[in-house]
């Protein structure tokens, strides 16, 4: 199993800035022609009973969705594509998931597919196409034949998702209806993360920046932070430092999230 190198990407409060290179990347995807098939926009729109598409259209009827908001939503969509495909393939892999755990991963699959459809409905033609994924990360992992690895990557994806939405939310504070939805997705990802961690016998909350698997250490970079809004919390509470690190989850920069996700994206 290869290592996703841990790096010191500090979690920054509220910062959501797209690296120009990443923005270009997303723009390129946006222009990609391959929108047909399973993830086709038209099909998603047609099957959505309620979705936020209508809402986004009315909110931005004249000027369209602001570029910054669009970038955040496409960033989120990319992660949701990844999670949705991962659980879809996992649930389909015969003999991989023990029957007692199938309902759990199937629920994760259902939610991630719903998130994909929701974001597609909001973005409309501006939605990025689904990337091509390689969940072996070039042969480093074997999640669809090895259940332990499948769970490890599920934990990594869920905890990364929580951090990514947290980072993105601050950039949506001028788009209140989309912010509502982003926060509602965010807490669902956290419920998922909690359950997957428990399934692995791990603490449901992130302790310091620890992980039992070095290969996913980058997912937890910066999680040991104990200073919030300028308050060093360990100095104002009787709760242990470990407890304080557990009690706050940290955002992750877009660059760091895409570095993690990028390992599984072929194109």
């Amino acid at each position: 199993m290869s290592k996703i190198e841990s790096h010191d990407a500090p979690a920054t409060d509220g910062a959501f800035e797209l690296d120009p290179e990443i923005a270009d990347h997303l723009t390129t995807r946006r222009q990609a022609l391959s929108r047909a098939g399973l993830w086709g926009i038209g099909a998603a729109m047609a099957s959505l009973p309620l979705g936020l598409g209508v809402l986004a259209k009315s909110a931005y009827a004249r000027q369209g969705i602001p570029q910054q908001v669009e970038d955040i939503l496409n960033f989120a969509l990319t992660l949701e594509y990844l999670e949705a495909e991962y659980y879809t393939l996992g649930v389909q892999a015969s003999g991989l998931i023990p029957s007692a755990h199938v309902p759990i991963f199937d629920l994760l699959r259902i939610h991630e597919v719903q998130h994909v459809e929701l974001l597609q409905s909001v973005l409309g033609d501006a939605a990025v196409a689904k990337p091509t994924f390689d969940f072996t990360a070039g042969g480093a992992f074997d999640p669809f034949n090895d259940y332990a690895q499948f769970q490890i990557l599920a934990q990594a994806f869920e905890d990364t998702g929580v951090r990514a939405y947290k980072g993105g939310a601050a950039g949506l504070n001028s788009a209140p209806d989309l912010l509502d939805a982003a926060l509602q997705v965010h807490s669902v990802e956290a419920r998922h993360a909690s359950e997957v961690r428990a399934l692995r016998g791990q603490s449901r909350w992130i302790q310091f920046d620890e992980t039992d698997v070095a290969a996913i250490a980058a997912v937890y970079a910066g999680e040991a932070n104990t200073t919030h809004a300028g308050v060093e919390v360990t100095g104002v509470t009787g709760v242990s430092e470990r407890g304080v690190t557990e009690a706050w989850d940290e955002p992750l920069s877009v660059a760091a999230v895409l570095e993690i996700a990028g390992l599984f994206i072929v194109d």
């Binding site: 409060d13 929580v162 947290k166 419920r191 449901r204 909350w205 989850d249 955002p251």
Partner: peptide, 26 residues
């Protein structure tokens, strides 16, 4: 508020709510 202060507080709240959601699942 839809300004930098509001955005910073939104992130602070976001750091807490995901832990509440972890609790809820537990």
């Amino acid at each position: 508020t839809a300004d930098a202060d509001g955005a910073a507080l939104l992130t602070i709240a976001g750091k807490i709510v995901s832990v509440e959601a972890r609790h809820a699942a537990a």
